[in-house]
Each structure stands twice: as structure tokens, then as C-alpha cells.
Amino acid sequence: MSTATTHEAATENHEVEHHGLSDKQYIVIALILAALTAIEVSTYYVDFGPFFMPTLLILMVIKFVTVVSYFMHLKFDNKIFSYLFYAGLLLAIAVYCGFLATFKFFLKQG
């Protein structure tokens, strides 16, 4: 078995897997992200009342997932990459929320 052929085969697979978006679509996503950021910043000027925290947290998650899914291609790529990354992310969230919970952190904030 020669390396050259496997390498080419691997490259071909590689290109087939790329269902990335077109440049125009990337720009549209960037505009959406910019708009979301504008809403986030507007909370500083406009009083959102009880919706203040939920709005900010939800927008944060949407922006995060959008960048990960589209700009980082996770939505189009092999699921294994998603598992590896989200394993780390969810573990981090779980462990550190547990950690802050032992300090009664969330109660104090409420």
C-alpha cells in the first residue's frame, strides 16, 4: 500500500465533506451576529426589566452556537468533532456550575 494513494483518497474524502456555505451566506450570518450584538448592547441603554438577564444569556448562547455551527463548520462536519468539543463544553458547564453552587453563588445573585 503506498502512502501517495491513501493520501489522495483522504484528500478526496476531505473535499466531499465540505458543505460549507458560500461567501455570501457567511456575510449574512455575520450581519445577523452583528444585529444580535446590537440588541445585547442596547440592554445597556434601554431597561429590559425582568427580561434583562434571560435576554442576554439567550443571545449569548445563540451567538456562540451560530459561530460554532457555521463559522467553525461543526454543523456540516463529522459528528465526532461535535462530540469531542461539546463533551468538553458541557463538562465545563456542569462542573463549574456545581462548583459555584457549593458557594451558594446562584442564590446570592437571585
Binding site: L84, F85, Y86, G88, L89, A92, Y96
Partner: peptide, 10 residues
């Protein structure tokens, strides 16, 4: 990057 999540999480 998954590992870095734990770093920044801390």
C-alpha cells in the same frame, strides 16, 4: 478546543 473550555471555564 474542548480542553480549552475547561481552562476558560475555570
Amino acid at each position: 478546543l474542548g480542553s480549552e473550555c475547561l481552562l476558560f471555564g475555570g
